[in-house]
């Protein structure tokens, strides 16, 4: 009988050139004819953890600090930590295999809850502008930063990882896994005019590893003001 494999909800119509098997995930490392960008990469297989605790500050996942303000992100070593609210953060293992889920009850493995897509390269942010009113290019925020809101009508977590010249740059995006096909269709449709093509994990790693370790943004002045003035959450 066939080997047991996992399957991503994203199936690009492109020729996979190189595939690696990782924890039963067939991971496409490279597609033929990926072009010069912009690129869209399926990262659904990347491990994602949800951490919720009233006292989030007492946690140091993998020894890393959790950013303190909602909307702030920290991309350190191979891990991106996004602060979601007062009691919750998301931990995405972007560049290396994840270790076992920590035993504390606050952690949940949510790898399979969402589809994770990277959209980057020339005009990547112009593609996003066709799909969301979220300000992914907010000049008052330092990359990486997180926005939780609608993207192509669906509630998403969107992280601007890089903002380059004009509309160049890149972002990560998650939405409910069941929407994967609709979301990918919408992104490819919006990106067609810019030559958007699917790319393999290698392309993502090459881009993202250049960004890891940069100082994370802690400045989100408008948000900070609100957090300190509101009692209800």
């Amino acid at each position: 009988m066939k080997e047991i494999q996992r399957q991503s909800p994203v199936q690009f119509k492109a020729d996979a050139q190189k595939i690696a098997m990782r924890d039963n995930w067939p991971v496409v490392l490279e597609y033929s004819n990926e072009g010069r960008g912009p690129f869209v990469v399926d990262l659904t297989h990347k491990a994602k953890w949800d951490l919720q605790d009233k006292n989030l500050a007492t946690h140091k996942p993998l020894g890393l600090d959790i950013p303190t303000l909602p909307g702030a992100c920290a991309f350190q070593k191979s891990v991106l930590i996004n602060r979601l609210n007062r009691t919750q953060c998301a931990i995405w293992h972007l560049l290396a295999d994840a270790p076992a889920l920590p035993g504390e009850p606050g952690y949940t493995d949510v790898t399979e809850s969402t589809v994770l897509l990277a959209l980057f390269g020339p005009n990547a942010l112009a593609i996003a502008e066709k799909l969301t009113a979220l300000d992914l290019m907010d000049p008052q925020k330092q990359t990486p930063f997180l926005l939780q809101g609608p993207f192509s009508h669906l509630p998403c977590q969107v992280v601007t990882l890089e903002r380059g010249h004009g509309f160049d740059g890149g972002l990560l995006l998650t939405c409910s896994r069941g929407y994967a096909r609709s979301m990918v269709h919408a992104i490819l449709d919006a990106g067609a005019e810019f030559g958007l093509r699917p790319a393999g994990e290698q392309r993502f790693s090459a881009w993202a590893s250049g960004l890891s370790g940069k100082p994370g943004s802690a400045q989100a002045p408008s948000v900070m003001h609100l957090v300190t003035t509101r009692e209800n959450l």
Binding site: N85, L147, Q148, S222, V223, L226, R230, L233
Partner: peptide, 14 residues
């Protein structure tokens, strides 16, 4: 609407 986590957003998100 001003969300305590996300800041000022379009009301239809709420």
């Amino acid at each position: 609407i001003s969300c305590p986590n996300c800041g000022k957003r379009n009301g239809y998100e709420f």
